[in-house]
């Protein structure tokens, strides 16, 4: 793997590793790491440094819904314009154009069932291009962004082996 890609996979898992530690782990100069990071940020390869939070363990529980949306594409704009109308809503955390039985997958975070339902009925369904929606609520998040949320790593090995 190229150093640049290795750097990306490292900070994708843990964005808090500092430049010094990255330089040690990758066998690179600190300045080189810093420059590479700046370049990746400037090029939009690195789009942000987020934290993976299991909200279900807080009192501020959030509800995540995945909504399949079928839409009518528009001449000249395809799906882009309608997608933009949807993803501009701040409660939409992700939006993807999807191949297969429907067109756009919208992932939504809301505080309550009512809030999500409100979004679907008042905002999404009323858009002229939207033909239909199907809303799925996430009941348990087992694994998110490659991280298993429920279980802690446990070393099952003997303590000393040859």
């Amino acid at each position: 793997m190229e150093k640049r890609d290795e750097l990306l996979t490292l900070i994708e898992k843990n964005s808090r590793i500092d430049v010094h530690e990255l330089s040690v782990l990758l066998g690179m100069e600190e300045a080189e790491v810093a420059n590479t990071l700046s370049a990746l940020e400037a090029d939009g390869v690195i789009c942000g440094y987020h934290t993976l939070i299991d909200w279900s363990k807080t009192s501020n529980e959030k509800l995540t819904a995945m909504i399949e949306v079928r839409v009518t594409p528009q001449r000249g704009h395809g799906f882009d314009q309608i997608a933009e109308r949807i993803y501009k809503y701040p409660e939409v955390t992700s939006a993807y154009l999807i191949s297969g039985g429907f067109d756009i997958m919208v992932i939504l975070e809301g505080r309550s069932l009512k809030e999500v339902a409100g979004f679907v009925t008042d905002k999404l369904s009323t858009l002229e291009e939207v033909i239909s929606t199907a809303t799925h609520f996430i009941l348990v998040k087992y694994k998110d962004h490659g991280t298993i949320l429920s279980k802690k790593y446990e070393d099952k090995r003997e303590l000393i082996t040859p």
Binding site: D155, R157, E158, L159, I160, T161, P162
Partner: peptide, 26 residues
């Protein structure tokens, strides 16, 4: 007996010990 054995026996009795002593992948 293997020289490793002796340490294994000591470590077994120390629940708060951490080990860098294994010869197998994590």
């Amino acid at each position: 007996p293997s020289g490793i054995r002796k340490f294994f026996d000591i470590v077994q009795d120390m629940p708060d010990a951490i080990s860098l002593g294994v010869g197998e992948p994590d």
